[in-house]
Design a binder for these strands. Structure first.
Length: 758
DNA sequence: GTGGTGTAG
DNA sequence: GGTTCTACACCAC
């Protein structure tokens, strides 16, 4: 943020850096740092960076709107990983110890956040939503996305040259917006408007707010997106690149420079960004090698030409848990089984077949508390891999056994050991065309439809290409010569089971009811979706207006299918009423399934029966239903016209669910329940959501308590579902997801029936 | 392919 | 630089 002599000195450097740019325009901008003529590179790319505000907290506040008005912290173990702005105003910060946070803000409401299921799902919805406008979306963690909208911008300017004259939306870094001369960088100006529209989309469809940065590279977009928080956006003009780089205090602030690199740089005497900018490259090369040295110096100079690489399907799925101490094989066995059953479920839903299993441990060491991780991996035999894909419950036992072998490779159990973390990971994920048989026809339809309707649009090609490019190492499907479309299907598959209905429903909803959104949509949609929004609406009329075809099914695609498949789809979509609600009914049923206390008891019962043999009859039963395409289709298609609190009459399902819970609860390790907050079971008993700490609740002012209670009373069907299943420690909801019916999706679905006010 | 490290949110 | 729970890239072997 400092101007002065250094700036003038630096100008030469900047000139040389930019020398490869064609005809740098000379512009004069008043009100900013540059009062002299400064050569700036032309805008060649327009990159957006989206950063959701306190993401986990937002997800929880959507799940339980009453939390919006209280200081909310998301707790993982003894850490507040994030908190809402109410809590921030009261002094709570990210990564604060729970004890410190409570001291600082006694009224802080805590929600357990170790189970990432909901965050992951919401995260992918955001990515997916962005991808529906432009395929070039790259994820960075759960709450950030990059997007290359260069094409979108070009097209918009082409179609509407007027748009180039519009002003910047939101902030312009280091400038009064009124001072920013739009004509200088029309692409960035248009980009800023697109960013605003996309943020509005994210808000209207998913209820999430966030910041955006608009710039010419990922590096700069990321750096600038946080300039104004929360829920604002900032454009960085090329003229201000030097400013923003200079404003970073310390090399660690440069994305791409982690603490190890920073340490090495410091050893070279480099502390500030400017130090690195000016350091002789040759010396840097000696320390880091050519490519890293060049990259680091470029980063310091604000130069980053790395492309936005569409993220696509995750390349590994892992699940882990940390703990104070684990020192018996028995505990390890339990935990491994626990973790495995959770990722098994995710893996099954993903549809790809993992070829590799990895087990990672972290050992405690008094001298070196953060003793690094060790891992062992092994190939997963094909017959087991297939069981994973098909949802065959035998896979669990076999994988546990494999994982334990890996464990014994690392740990000599004859001597004492002390672990503080276990991680299981499926990697080397192979797409299977056989996935079709598993019910992904439905996901083909549902996921394809937004894309399929683009068939006539210019972006369709781009999209399938990028999707293809994404699916690194995945086998393209070749059924009926529809390679491309089925590849699209595979691509759709990775979006973790967002049911078709979710994809369409919010869309329709906001289109219909949100004047702002409908005003903006044609603008945003013009890039890739083109006229397809309307198509989609006609094809998917929404919940109440069921046409000949089930909602979400693209008639064009439907027509292409063999008759028997068509029939199956129809029968799946419109079965007799008592059936077909399998998945969702597990949701409604759940609160009545069994007394939480009973479940706790049952867990003790079976506790002694392990680990000699894995017994999970209920899980088997449930998983078996995964084999049925029919059921899967029904779930996917049917949930759409479900009412939020629709009562379930199917007792059999209750039994299934309840026995499932027994078998899964058995896996819980007892140690966990004694730590941390009051257990979720207790809070569920109290009649309010399990994700709310009763103690904390009792400390709230009476009027807040009343308000919360009245909110919860309206929400209880939703909240109880999740809360009654939540457990201490690891992967509570993952257990819930064991149910064949992809219950957490249904959970998400319910959310849309009762949208939050925000 | 395996195992460790570094980076990131 | 460490807490958490992921996920990815890169490198040496």
């Amino acid at each position: 943020m400092d101007v002065g002599d250094e700036d003038i000195e630096d100008e030469t450097d900047w000139n040389s850096i930019c020398s490869d740019f064609v005809q740098p325009p000379h512009v004069v901008i008043h009100g900013g740092k540059y009062c002299s003529k400064v050569p700036v590179p032309p805008v060649q790319r327009v990159i957006l960076h989206f950063d959701l505000d306190c993401f986990y907290a937002q997800v929880e506040m959507i799940r339980n709107p009453a939390l919006r008005n209280v200081p909310l912290g998301i707790q993982q173990k003894y850490i507040i990983v994030t908190c809402n702005y109410v809590a921030r105003d009261l002094g709570v910060t990210k990564l604060m110890l729970v004890t410190d946070a409570k001291e600082k803000c006694p009224q802080l409401v805590l929600v357990k956040g170790e189970d990432l299921t909901h965050y992951r799902e919401t995260s992918y919805k955001v990515t997916e939503l962005l991808m529906s406008f432009c395929p070039l979306v790259e994820r960075l963690g759960f709450d950030e996305n990059f997007m290359d909208i260069t094409e979108m911008v070009e097209r918009r300017i082409e179609q509407n040259p007027e748009s180039a004259h519009y002003s910047y939306e939101g902030h312009v870094y280091n400038l009064d917006t009124s001072d920013a001369k739009v004509m200088v960088h029309p692409r960035l100006a248009v980009g800023s408007r697109i960013a605003a529209e996309l943020r509005a989309e994210i808000h209207s469809k998913l209820g999430l707010t966030g910041c955006a940065g608009i710039a010419t590279s990922k590096l700069l977009a990321k750096l600038v997106s946080g300039a104004f928080k929360p829920n604002q956006q900032t454009t960085l003009l090329p003229e201000s690149v030097k400013d923003i780089m200079g404003s970073l205090n310390g090399l660690r602030k440069v994305p791409g420079v982690g603490h190890q690199t920073a340490k090495r740089l410091q050893a070279l005497g480099l502390v500030s960004v400017q130090d690195l900018q000016l350091f002789p490259l040759a010396d840097l090369v000696r320390e880091f090698g050519v490519s890293t040295a060049q990259r680091l110096q470029n980063l310091a100079l604000g130069i980053d030409d790395t492309p936005v690489t569409p993220t696509g399907a995750p390349q590994s799925l892992s699940d882990e848990d940390s703990f104070k101490k684990m020192s018996s094989t028995n505990e390890v066995w339990q935990k491994v089984k626990d973790l495995l059953s959770s990722i098994l479920d995710r893996m099954h839903k993903d549809g790809r077949q993992p070829l590799t299993l990895r087990l990672t441990i972290r050992r405690y060491s008094a001298t070196n508390k953060w003793f690094s991780r060790e891992s062992r991996q092994c190939p997963i035999p094909n017959h087991i891999g297939q069981k994973i894909t098909s949802g065959n419950c035998d896979a669990l036992a076999q994988l546990v056994s494999m994982a334990m072998k890996l464990f014994h490779k690392m740990v000599d159990t004859n001597t004492a050991f002390h672990l503080t973390l276990l991680n299981v990971c499926f990697s080397n994920l192979q797409a299977k065309c056989a996935a079709v048989s598993k019910g992904s026809i439905a996901s083909f339809f549902t996921h394809r439809s937004p894309e399929k309707t683009q068939a006539s649009s210019r972006c369709q090609e781009d999209l399938s290409q990028s999707v293809l490019g994404n699916l690194r190492g995945q086998v393209g499907s070749d059924v009926e010569g529809k390679t491309e479309e089925l590849t699209g299907q595979d691509a759709s598959h990775w979006i973790p089971d967002i049911p078709s209905n979710l994809k369409i429903k919010p869309y329709t909803q906001s289109t219909m009811h949100n004047p702002e959104a409908s005003q903006q949509r044609p603008m945003v949609g013009e890039c890739c979706i083109g006229g397809t929004v309307d198509d989609k609406r006609t094809n998917s009329p929404g919940m109440t207006d069921v046409p000949l075809l089930p909602p979400n099914i693209d008639p064009e695609v439907f027509r292409l299918l063999p008759e028997d498949i068509q029939k199956e789809l129809l029968s799946a979509a419109y079965p007799e009423t008592a059936h077909g609600l399998h998945s969702h009914s597990t949701q409604s049923v759940r609160p009545t399934v069994s007394d939480p206390a009973d479940r706790a008891h049952s867990s003790h019962h079976n506790h002694s029966e392990q680990p000699a043999s894995l017994s999970q009859p209920a899980a088997c039963k449930l998983n078996d239903s995964f084999h049925s395409t029919r059921i899967d289709l029904r779930e996917t298609v049917k949930g759409f016209d479900r009412q939020p609190n629709a009562p379930t009459t199917n007792n059999q399902q209750e039994h299934t669910v309840s026995s499932l819970q027994y078998s899964l609860t058995d896996l819980l390790e007892e140690g966990n329940s004694s730590t941390g907050l009051v257990s979720q079971r207790q809070s569920a008993d109290c009649g309010f959501p399990g994700n709310v700490d009763p103690k904390v609740f009792s400390e709230l002012p009476p009027e807040v308590q009343r308000e919360l209670l009245s909110e919860w009373r309206q929400q209880i069907p939703v909240l109880k579902i999740s809360s009654s299943l939540k457990k201490q420690g690891k992967s509570p909801l993952a257990r819930e997801k064991k149910a064949p019916a992809k219950s957490s999706q249904a959970n998400d679905l319910l959310k849309y029936f009762k949208p939050s006010s925000g």
